[in-house]
């Protein structure tokens, strides 16, 4: 479902900076649990992950990460409201069908939400579309016919979504190759990282 590798991904460090030490973190679509393991080493968090894939469940257990096997599409009913400081959805939003409900659930269960997703507005993606085909790159490594990414969006799309759904964006960082893309981020950034809370 998502693209979690063994190496520390660029968004991990960015996310870690936003997580206060000793807090309680829920990672949705947690893959092999490497982000939670990273946060637990670097931020002393109490973490739980949600995953659907059998192999990832096994990997989480090997990594000593608490993991609950569940389908995010069916919600987070096993978690009480306001029971987490942060709920993270990392590189998974673009592969989910029920976008609105998962964002709603994240803000029910957690005080703050953090999402990361590949920025479809990145200039190389735009060029590939101008050349007449769907983008394939290291960030979007799939062909159109086998891609799990059914809800690709740009950073601007996500900002509009938040505005329309009463989601209050606290912080946004757009990255390219591990560096912050501050100039025209929707054009020059490959990876968007947002931190948000319930709108007032």
């Amino acid at each position: 479902m998502n693209e979690r590798g063994a190496a520390v991904r660029h968004d991990y460090e960015t996310i870690a900076k936003w997580i206060a030490p000793g807090t309680k973190v829920l990672d949705l679509g947690c893959g092999d649990g490497s982000l939670l393991a990273y946060l637990s080493r670097n931020r002393a968090i109490r973490g739980y992950g949600v995953e659907i894939d059998d192999e990832n469940i096994l990997a989480c257990i090997k990594n000593s990460v608490n993991v609950i096997q569940s389908d995010l599409e069916s919600g987070l009913s096993v978690f009480e409201s306001d029971s987490f400081d942060y709920v993270i959805l990392s590189q998974t939003l673009q592969a989910m069908k029920n976008t609105e409900s998962i964002i709603r659930e994240m803000l029910r269960v957690g005080r703050e939400g953090i999402v990361t997703f590949p920025n479809f507005g990145y200039w190389q993606n735009r060029v590939q579309i101008l050349q007449g085909h769907m983008p394939v790159s290291s960030n979007l490594p799939y062909e159109w016919y086998d891609s799990p990414n059914i809800r690709l969006c740009t950073t601007r799309d996500f900002e509009n979504f938040c505005a329309e759904h009463g989601v209050n964006i606290l912080q946004r960082i757009v990255m390219n190759n591990g560096k912050v893309a501050s100039f025209l981020p929707n054009l020059f950034g490959t990876l968007a990282v947002f931190r948000f809370t319930k709108g007032g």
């Binding site: 059998d54 608490n66 993991v67 609950i68 978690f79 009480e80």
Partner: peptide
């Protein structure tokens, strides 16, 4: 699992 989570106990669940 829910009861254990409610108590912030360490738990993993696989189906």
């Amino acid at each position: 699992v829910k009861a254990l989570l409610d108590n912030e106990l360490k738990v993993s669940h696989t189906e």
